[in-house]
Design a protein around this nucleic acid. Structure first.
Length: 295
DNA sequence: AGTTGTCAAGCTAGT
DNA sequence: ACTAGCTTGACAACT
């Protein structure tokens, strides 16, 4: 079991997700920004290893405008050696990596250009992980997409689009149950058709499910991960008390997380903590996991 | 130095 | 008709 946090580190004063406004675009600005992001990513990963945080989500802002028509700069070759060095560090320390492209990635969109832009977005995420020479346990996670008033055909459209994807994308792509539209059951239907692994998100499941228990849903998702995909990944969060349903907690809820680990102790998986305050919660989670599990 | 409107991209549900 | 929210606030123009 590896535990980690997404995208942003608040401890070391270095962000791997700097970007800038499109109207200020220049190639030199792009190179400068990517160089800074990669340097900070290295520092964050080093911090994580020191703190036994072996799971990290790399921000989609690490390469600004990567799928924009303007973004023709060959960053993968320009930064090849640095990307390889980061990849070496990741492999050497057994760090698990994920990425989560934004809400604009909709493989089942009705407008063809939205689908094309989505595929281009997935492609660069996978190229980044490829440039780091990471194996297929490094994943790119998305939601199923929009519903467009008809769940059955929106799922069909997802499947049809998935089948057209190049292998270098397919081998990294995973889907996550969301909190309003597509449940674990819906994701499982897609898995049955095309074999795509499912990332289980417990808070989304609490908001929107078809009545399965946490453990039932998690077992079902865990089975969708093949050997080549590595240990199942999950997103974990809890409800922020008093806030809108589905709002991620500001800090880790010890009792909720302990109960979660207890309920799921028949399974092994890597946990991405979607908790707002980042590292403090991640460190707390490690202490709790050490108390409750062989870790 | 501090504040605040805005940022490439889509969709849904709630107001 | 408008907007918050989404994996994550940060940028940049203003006072």
């Amino acid at each position: 079991m590896k535990i980690g946090y997404p995208c942003i580190n608040r401890s070391i004063g270095c962000t791997a997700n700097s970007t800038f406004r499109l109207k200020n675009y220049s190639e030199s600005r792009l190179i400068e920004t990517i160089a800074n992001n990669l340097t900070c990513l290295q520092k964050i990963l080093a911090f994580n290893v020191e703190n036994e945080l072996y799971f990290f989500r790399i921000s989609s802002d690490i390469i600004p405008f990567a799928s924009h028509p303007l973004g023709t700069f060959p960053w993968a070759t320009h930064f090849a050696s640095q990307l390889q060095a980061i990849g070496n560090f990741i492999r050497q320390h057994g760090i698990r990596i994920s990425m989560h492209p934004s809400q604009f990635v909709l493989l089942n969109a009705q407008r063809p250009e939205v689908v094309q832009n989505s595929i281009a977005e997935l492609a660069w995420h996978c190229q980044l992980l490829d440039a780091m020479m990471l194996d297929t346990t490094a994943k790119v996670q998305i939601h199923v997409g929009g519903m467009y008033g008809d769940k059955v055909s929106s799922i069909k459209n997802f499947i049809a689009c998935y089948q057209t994807l190049a292998d270098f994308i397919k081998q990294r792509l995973v889907i996550e149950n969301d909190d309003r539209l597509f449940t674990v059951t819906d994701c499982l239907a897609i898995y049955q058709a095309v074999g795509i692994p499912i990332i289980f998100d417990n808070l989304h499941h609490e908001c929107h499910s078809d009545g399965e228990t946490l453990l039932q849903a998690m077992h079902a998702c865990a089975k969708t991960w093949a050997q080549r995909d590595g240990l199942p990944m999950v997103d974990y969060s809890s409800q922020e008390p008093g806030a809108r349903l589905g709002k991620h907690a500001e800090a880790l809820d010890d009792a909720h997380f302990s109960a979660y680990l207890q309920q799921t102790k028949t399974l092994d998986f890597d946990i991405m903590l979607e908790i707002k305050n980042k590292e403090p919660s991640a460190l707390m989670a490690i202490a709790i996991a050490r108390r409750l599990r062989a870790f």
